[in-house]
Design a protein around this nucleic acid. Structure first.
Length: 587
RNA sequence: GGUCUCGUAGCUCAGCUGGAUAGAGCAGCUGACUUCUAAUCAGCAGGUCACAGGUUCGAGUCCUGUCGGGAUCACCA
């Protein structure tokens, strides 16, 4: 049993024995003891003073005595006000370390038989991925890795918004101004090329609007916008010419996206295309009408009244019988369930759609969908720049590809300055720089709680000092370096029963790992892993600095420290893997 | 206007179901490389946890209100 669980269970016994009162394990608040006090774990005794009807120090004294007398691993205690600080025996720590060292996959939970589908990224096909998508992708990826670690069967999907007026705008501009330009002829990545025409379109529309305004016709629609609408109609009518162009340009975009995803290190099990799913959902509306969950207005439009759930009246089908966004999402949810029969379904989507998902989930619940209870919107805040919001009109949108190139470039420059890896082949160096740069970027983004709007300062994102991805990578590299130098050892680490503060700190931290994974999953929050990894890394760096592992006084001590080092390294790598970060060979 | 959400050090962020003197990093200042990699470590300085009430033995954390930022409330997606 784990140490914290064990102490909690014994606390239940202690309270039962001393005060004839039954409590639950969860009533026991157990923390790691703060640095400035002696001890390893601290029990907060205030909650038991009422039961015992005694002052806090007296209760702590009685509980402390009971634990020392009855629990082998509790070696001693001290009391400060209402806090009972317990000291754990050195022999137990050694046993604990040996035990987790034997678990290659320490922190993983057994398969729980539950299936979860996680949707993330979900881009439009009219422009390349930007900073906001990076946050989305990293959160989605990390969440999916955490779920796997926690024993879920995970399927990663994205829905690609490949149809609609925005695509037609890019297509139209390309047709008008492109002169047959292709990714090959221009040397541009496909998504960027299509994005270029989206910008051209917008410029043209703006120009036409201004001309109309100057002519006193500001209420008139720009001619190019009318053309785009016509193109959408043709698309819907399966016009061969429009469809061919659409297929071709989408193909460019997809291959561009794939390249970006690969660099980011994310992948998907299945892609849904809006062009296939946009007509879904109408059956559900029929069903809902029959069940009187929806109602029809005189003009033929269909609505749902959600006012009793503190939401509004929402349209689910237009008066002309066509779908709206909500209709589609109802349909895709059903399709997804028929594809996967999942227990949980997570949508990683920005917080501007909070309301939409509340409504969607409420509707699915009312439709009586069996999976409705397992739906979750992993909502995250917008990414802003130090100067404020990104605005495509002002050209301040940070492009995903550019950003990745930039962080790797900076990692390279820093590395060259240090010269630590200059003896390696060019190829190996490139890989090291890539890992370091990407670690800086990823860590910088994931460390912030998803819900919060975050300020992204490009200068800080390539920071490799202090709380950063490279900081943690560096610890791992040190671990590997020490282990390599140590070679084989056969001394009995269990003989080492007088761990130093720095060592106990690490053991307490290691003990927490599986709980952190659980909490991360429960709260849908990868930032918990990021912060944990940093703390563990920091504790290790201090240990490494203060204690020379290879020059330990005797074989047993050295064995203990090497095992500790190994387990810390393994745990750090595991945590980094949950964040999508790889450890470089050297740095 | 209704609803949701955020407000913690100069800046960027932590703070687990309420628990000890609110913590990190960056920026600033000061020390530590002949040592298992200094992309590191140690120290100094930096706070009315937006504000006001309330619940509690105890509130940054829970409740109410106020102020400030953001989002959203389309027969757009």
């Amino acid at each position: 049993m784990e140490i914290t669980q064990l102490i909690k269970a014994e606390m239940v016994n202690a309270v039962e024995h001393l005060y004839k009162h039954s409590i639950k394990e969860n009533d026991v608040l157990l923390n790691a003891t703060r640095k400035e006090f002696e001890g390893d774990y601290t029990v907060v005794v205030f909650p038991f003073t009422k039961i015992a009807r005694k002052a806090p120090p007296a209760v702590a004294e009685e509980l402390g005595n009971y634990l020392v007398d009855n629990v082998e691993l509790v070696e001693g205690f001290n009391i400060i006000k209402g806090f009972l600080n317990l000291s754990i025996s050195g022999a137990y720590w050694a046993k604990f370390l040996l035990q987790i060292a034997a678990q290659e996959d320490y922190g993983s939970l057994a398969a729980n038989g539950e299936k979860v589908v996680i949707e993330y990224s979900s881009p439009n096909t009219n422009k390349p991925l930007h900073l906001g998508h990076i946050r989305n992708n990293l959160l989605g990826w990390s969440m999916s890795k955490m779920l796997e670690k926690a024993g879920f069967d995970v399927k990663r999907v994205q829905i690609i918004n490949d149809r609609g007026i925005h695509i037609c705008k890019s297509m139209l501009a390309w047709k008008k101004f492109g002169n047959g330009e292709t990714p090959e002829s221009s040397g541009m990545k496909g998504d960027h090329l299509v994005g270029k025409y989206y910008v051209l379109y917008n410029n043209e529309e703006k120009k036409q609007k201004e001309a109309l305004k100057a002519a006193g016709k500001e209420n008139e629609e720009a001619a190019i916008l009318q053309e785009a609408r016509q193109m959408l109609l043709k698309w819907e009518e399966n016009d061969p010419e429009v469809r061919d162009m659409w297929n071709m340009m989408n193909g460019w975009v997809f291959s561009g996206f794939n390249e970006t995803y690969e660099r980011l290190g994310v992948s998907f099990d299945k892609l849904y295309y809006e062009s296939n799913t946009y007509l879904l959902g109408k059956n559900a509306i029929e069903q809902g009408l029959k069940k009187e969950i929806f109602y029809k207005k005189d003009d033929g439009s269909v609505w749902i009244d959600l006012e009793d759930a503190k939401l509004d009246q929402k349209l689910v089908l237009r008066s002309d019988g066509t779908s709206v966004y909500m209709t589609q999402d109802i349909g895709t949810a059903q399709e997804r369930y028929s594809d996967y029969k999942m227990d949980k379904s997570i949508y990683v989507v920005g917080d501007e759609q909070d309301y939409h998902f509340k409504v969607l989930f409420e509707i699915l619940k009312r439709l009586g969908e069996s999976y409705a209870e397992g739906l979750y919107h992993l909502s995250y805040g917008m990414v802003e720049l130090p100067e404020g919001k990104m605005k495509s009109r002002e050209g301040t949108v940070v492009d995903a590809d550019d950003l990745m190139t930039q962080v790797v470039q900076i990692a390279k420059e820093e590395s060259l300055e240090r010269g630590d890896v200059s003896d390696l082949s060019e190829e190996k160096q490139q890989e090291i720089w890539r890992r370091i740069g990407m670690a800086a970027l990823k860590y910088h983004m994931i460390r912030v709680s998803p819900r919060k709007t975050m300020i992204f300062d490009p200068k800080e994102s390539v920071d490799i000092q202090g709380q950063s991805g490279p900081f943690i990578q560096y610890s791992c590299v040190r671990v590997n370096s020490v282990l390599k130098k140590a070679g084989e050892w056969d001394a009995d680490m269990l003989q080492y029963t007088t761990p130093e503060e720095q060592e106990k700190n690490l053991l307490v931290m290691l003990q927490r790992y599986s709980h952190v994974v659980e909490e991360g999953v429960k709260n849908y929050d990868p930032s918990l892993i990021a912060n944990y990894a940093y703390e563990l890394s920091k504790s290790f760096n201090k240990f490494y600095h203060d204690i020379n592992i290879l020059k330990s006084p005797d074989g047993e001590t050295k064995a203990f420290r090497l095992v500790l080092t190994k387990v810390v390294g393994r745990t750090l790598e595991s945590a980094l893997d949950l964040l999508g970060i790889q450890v470089p060979e050297r740095m």
